[in-house]
Design a protein around this nucleic acid. Sequence first.
DNA 1: AACTTAAGTACACAATGTGTGTACTTTATG
DNA 2: CATAAAGTACACACATTGTGTACTTAAGTT
Lengths: 216, 216
Amino acid sequence: MAPTSISEPVNARSRRTRATLLAAAHAILKEEGFEALTMTAVAARAGVTRRAVYMHFPTRAELVGALFDHVSAVEGLAESVAEVWAAPDAAAALDAWAAHLARYHTRLIPVDRAVQRVWRLDPDAAAHRERVVAEKLSTCRRLADRLNGEGRLAAGWTAESAADMLFALISSDMIEALVVDRRWSRRRLADHLALLFRSTFVAGDGTPARPAAPAH
Amino acid sequence: MAPTSISEPVNARSRRTRATLLAAAHAILKEEGFEALTMTAVAARAGVTRRAVYMHFPTRAELVGALFDHVSAVEGLAESVAEVWAAPDAAAALDAWAAHLARYHTRLIPVDRAVQRVWRLDPDAAAHRERVVAEKLSTCRRLADRLNGEGRLAAGWTAESAADMLFALISSDMIEALVVDRRWSRRRLADHLALLFRSTFVAGDGTPARPAAPAH
DNA sequence: AACTTAAGTACACAATGTGTGTACTTTATG
DNA sequence: CATAAAGTACACACATTGTGTACTTAAGTT
């Protein structure tokens, strides 16, 4: 949402090109993976000079950062998270959170990997990372606080530690292992994540209050 | 343990150089991260020509693959896992597994990242990956089977799904989020992982049978 | 419609990195 | 000691990230 660069695009052509570049980058990432996401490839796919890419994104890191924001918008991050807060109580919110992870993050894996990579090797991308991490963490904190506020936080956890663990469980490694390596369906993933969350974080919820145990 | 390449080293000098190269690579990875792990850097650190590195490892992917095996041996993977099987029952084995992850995988993060990267971009490294994944999965499967065999597998899980989830929870993302971002100590990590594992996978174990709940 | 400026093109260039080729020199080992 | 493997010292091809600069085209402005 918040633009990474300070200056707004001035020209209509510029705005159009920028959008084309991001769309091209997104397509390449999905179809060919991070390694294929070179400035040359983006330029070629967008039908534009490589030099032009550098007018919009001075470095590859900035391209990837912008791509993250673009994909968040396109894939509807805000809407997906909104469903979590629409839940009637904290335990249901955890279920919704599991559903969100299964729905949204399974689609996000390639972009997420790209972003992580850039963060690791580019100090300039630190600001962008800080923002995203803070956002994720605050969402998890809100979930944990709600659970705690309703007096349903399981023994052994504090609002802080539960938030941290929930934060850690937003992991592309984990989701990829299940969905790609173990070929889990999104449904199976959502159900079992919900089960894990409930049994771990919700007090007195040995078996969840859902349509029974998942048995897919 | 199993050598990646078929042919044994023939020469004593060769064996020495190979060891020096792996040690150099390991040091670079730990001290400067994956980006710094170039063939030139390894050669320089080992006091050898860049060309010589290519005699031992035809590609960077093969170097990283060999490095993984090297680090597994040096950091004592087998010994660390052995403690898991020494546990008296399945629930205790889960605790030991949590301790293993906290002990071993926190040290492994840079190498693990490097290996993952190589896997993603190098089809030739697939064989190595297959082997490692199969090993991890079989360990998790053994844990889940034991739990199931003792009749203590929690509702909602089968031996398969529990094994898959345990497998997915061996995640550098997750461990890094807790240890690096959230500055958890290894102790804290081990305790909370154990708590998560027990409450998720062990039937009738709402609060663990350990020195009480972790409260660090 | 003419003017002005931003955006994009078409080159060329430097710096790194991977990986190969080849003739020469050193070192292990029978 | 003789021989073959291991390592050196070059040089090369290629890909990729960035930068520089003169030119052209499209978009706003008056």
